[in-house]
Simulated scan of single mutants.
Amino acid sequence: MTVPAPRVRRRPSVPGRVLPLLLVAALLAPVGLLLAQTHRLTGDDRDLATRERLGVQYLRALGPVTDALVDAQAAAVAGRPVSRDTLTTAVEQAAAVDSAIGDELRSRKRWSGLRAKLEALPDRGLTDPAGAFAAYGEVTDLLLALNRKIRDSSGLIRDPQSDSFFLQDGIGGDLPEAMVAAGRLADLTALAAQRPAAERPKTLAELAALRVAALGPATDLVADLRAAVANSESTDLGPNVLTPLDTYQRSVEALAALSAPAGTAGTGPTDPAQVAAARLNAQSAAKQLQPIILDQLDALLRERIDRLDRDRLLAVVAAALAVLLVVVVAVVLVGESRRTRRRAPDERPAREDSGALPAAWQPPAEARQLQPVGSARPGEPERWEPFDAAR
């Protein structure tokens, strides 16, 4: 009969102990990759939105400069004294903004050139209305170029969201161009009455071009703002923008009607006073609309930055929880491995003691000698002698 040997507890091999830890470490790789990718993408979007807010800040400072410059041009062309107080204040405020963020937006050189032209305007011979019109036209061109530069360097022109893209296009491109062109249209209308009759065809062509230049951006502005409202999820954009937009649209339509050539052939003179009044109404409506657009655009950018910050925080929290779970699993596996190693020495003496029990049958120490078949055993003949004698 065979007695079964006790089951020996086998100690886990080195690969068996290391493999779970390697699997745990492998789980951390995709988590780290996902966190790094999320952090990079949200970081790029956040940096763009932050730079766009700087662009909004700069455009907000350029708005009063545009208003004051158009008013100064109208006064100079009309032969009235030019009030420098409003323009000087606007220039100083814009200079402070450029000093703060001009390096980041790479606008220092353009602003310096524009400011030099602005400060040189009072020193020019503005008694000539045509000369004043040309001088202010040069400065307003530089101002519009600076607006385009700010949109490009701040990233506003590359905004990825529909609502904020249409808003920046309207406030940074369409509105300044419409205001400048409306001012030039009114001023050229006043100059046309002073030109000789021989220049009448040329003047009408210039007025037609300025009329298109003024009405085109104004129409684009209306389309941009309505598109922004239609594509926005914000509940504040529509109510805040549409009412002043309607006022501006009506004023632009009045300017278009009053600046159109009179007469059946379309060659008759227009009334400069009516055109100037219509320009003032359009400019006043634009001044009311301008801060509203800037505020709504800045609010959308702030909301985007807050949303990106929340996404980054959620990604970090999710990665931290994943790492925590992996660490817990690793601690459990390491603890189990240590307990297995501690139990192994305690089981060896038990196996050595169990060796005293026979694993199989063992023969006795003294083996008996085998007898051949039929032979008598020792002492057996003497035992049967009396029986044989009786027979």
Rank of each mutant, 00 (worst) to 15 (best):
S284T: 08
V241E: 03
V18I: 03
D271F: 09
W361Y: 11
E119A: 09
T247M: 13
A145Y: 12
A213D: 12
P15Y: 06
D45K: 13
L22H: 05
L34T: 09
L210G: 15
A227T: 08
R84H: 11
G173N: 14
G183L: 01
R200C: 08
L22I: 00
Q371V: 13
A218T: 10
G268M: 00
L19Y: 12
S162W: 07
T340H: 08
S162Q: 11
R304L: 02
L33G: 11
A190H: 13
V331M: 05
Q283C: 00
P64R: 05
E253C: 13
F387W: 15
L325W: 11
D163T: 02
P20Q: 01
E92C: 10
Q362V: 15
G32W: 00
V317E: 08
E253W: 07
T86P: 15
L175I: 11
V65C: 08
L258F: 15
Q37V: 02
R46Y: 08
G79R: 04
G266E: 01
S99E: 12
R108S: 10
S354C: 09
L289D: 09
S13A: 07
A356L: 15
W384F: 13
Q249W: 05
T235L: 08
I305M: 07
L204Y: 09
E380V: 06
F166N: 09
E104V: 06
A135I: 05
L121R: 11
E352T: 06
A389H: 10
L48N: 13
D123L: 10
S284Q: 14
R80Y: 01
V331E: 04
L114Y: 03
G79L: 01
L19D: 06
D295T: 14
R158W: 12
P217L: 00
T235C: 01
T89W: 09
S13V: 00
R11V: 04
P30K: 00
Q249H: 13
I305N: 05
E385V: 09
L297Y: 12
V334H: 09
A228T: 01
L204P: 13
V31W: 02
V8N: 06
R11Y: 10
A318V: 04
L185S: 14
A322Q: 07
L325F: 12
L225N: 10
L185F: 10
T140L: 13
G172W: 07
P239L: 03
K149C: 08
A135G: 11
A360M: 06
Q249I: 03
V331G: 04
Q283G: 04
R304Q: 08
L28K: 04
S251Y: 02
A299W: 00
